[in-house]
Design a protein around this nucleic acid. Structure first.
Lengths: 215, 215
DNA sequence: CTCAAGTGAATGAATGGTCATTCATTTTGT
DNA sequence: ACAAAATGAATGACCATTCATTCACTTGAG
């Protein structure tokens, strides 16, 4: 009857039943997610009505429930899907890179490029996901912790390569770098002026690598 | 009739009518705020019922409305009051300090000491205030922007004193420092382990001043 | 000193509005 | 004609806010 793929993993290649089409199902799920990102970004999760999402997706209210168990599941799908692609893309991009500092540069660029490319998605990530400890814990469990860990391992690697100071705790350093990038995104979202987010990566890394103190 | 001091400014010395007592009014407002911090921290703003707050404060539901116009006004009071004391304390603490790097150190320590001393309050700040763009904008307007600006000016000062590199944009640097501190707080809140938050200030500043790159 | 009237703070049950979710019915596609 | 998909009106919870009533004091007349 309903679909409710417990997690709409990724872009999904195979259709449910056999081989023909039933493409529409996946398309509609997509449409709902896109609509939800837009609505959540504008009104916030708690103030968004399911009927707003349905309206934005141009379907009936009830149809939403053919694809998602609940309003909350929509939010989960958004961030699970996003983190998954975020992380896999990140890993793929850095695996060919040798030097740890170049890896971190690529990670930072990706981070800002990705969120800078879709303001609504960025808002959902920066704002809605953090609006409840519950979401944050779930988010942290599912993906975010892994993301931080990739940064941490890269920093450790840089220490072994003799590029980074060995007296620093890589866990703390990874939080610092992440926190700095995250703040850039938050400021960008709140700012009225339309500036490019991605270029901030270079400035952040300059400070992170070299510090602000006069040489 | 009702009280609704449009903003319960600070600790309020004078009592309403004449000279005797009527202390109870202010005390109750206080009690409601303390109760709300606890309740918001545990359940999140949107999931907190006014009756939960009243229950925690051991008063009737209706009494809340003798002291606050609405549930939202309670949240506003919490952060207006907090930012006000945060900023004034910060200014006072650094005004006697000469060197910009020492000033930043004191700011960072205060930031983490303050939030580290009251987990519930920290949760309301880190989590609930950011759960809606609306709150964030209001928050940003009322105090947060000023806080960031204090950091920015201190960095500019450090550049003039020849302590910090002059090729860096102080606005960006202030965001980096704030973002790094903020991330420490968020991690501390989410962490199950009870560790001290304040000591992280030193590590953050070490990286901020000197960078992670090997000298 | 005593107590009846007055005052406004406090109470908590009732109200009203808002949605998430359901499901009987209709539409679409084969 | 049948099944699957879609519809949207109806349902039922839930909660912020209100307000008629109670309660705890104070006051001042006798």
């Amino acid at each position: 009857m309903t679909i409710h793929s417990l997690e709409g993993s990724s872009l999904m290649a195979a259709s449910r039943t056999a081989d023909v089409s039933t493409r529409s199902g996946t398309d509609k799920r997509e449409a709902i997610i896109r609509a939800a990102i837009k609505v959540f970004a504008r009104k916030g999760y708690f103030s968004s009505k399911v009927s707003d999402i349905a309206g934005q997706a141009k379907i009936a209210d009830g149809t939403v429930y053919l694809y998602f168990k609940s309003k909350e599941e929509i939010l989960h799908s958004i961030f699970n899907r996003m983190m998954e692609s975020f992380i896999s893309e990140g890993k793929r991009e850095i695996e060919g890179i040798e030097k740890a500092d170049d890896k971190l540069r690529r990670i930072a660029e990706l981070h800002l490029e990705r969120l800078g490319a879709d303001r609504d998605l960025a808002i959902v990530f920066q704002v809605q996901l953090r609006g409840s400890i519950k979401f944050m814990r779930e988010f942290s469990a599912a993906g975010f912790a892994e993301y931080l860990d990739i940064i941490r391992r890269t920093i450790s690697e840089g220490q072994k390569q003799g590029l980074f100071r060995k007296d620093l705790n890589p866990v703390v350093c990874s939080k610092i770098l992440f926190g700095a990038l995250d703040e850039m995104v938050t400021n960008w979202i709140l700012s009225k002026k339309k500036f490019e987010l991605a270029p901030a990566a270079g400035e952040v890394l300059d400070v992170f690598f070299n510090g602000v103190a006069r040489a």
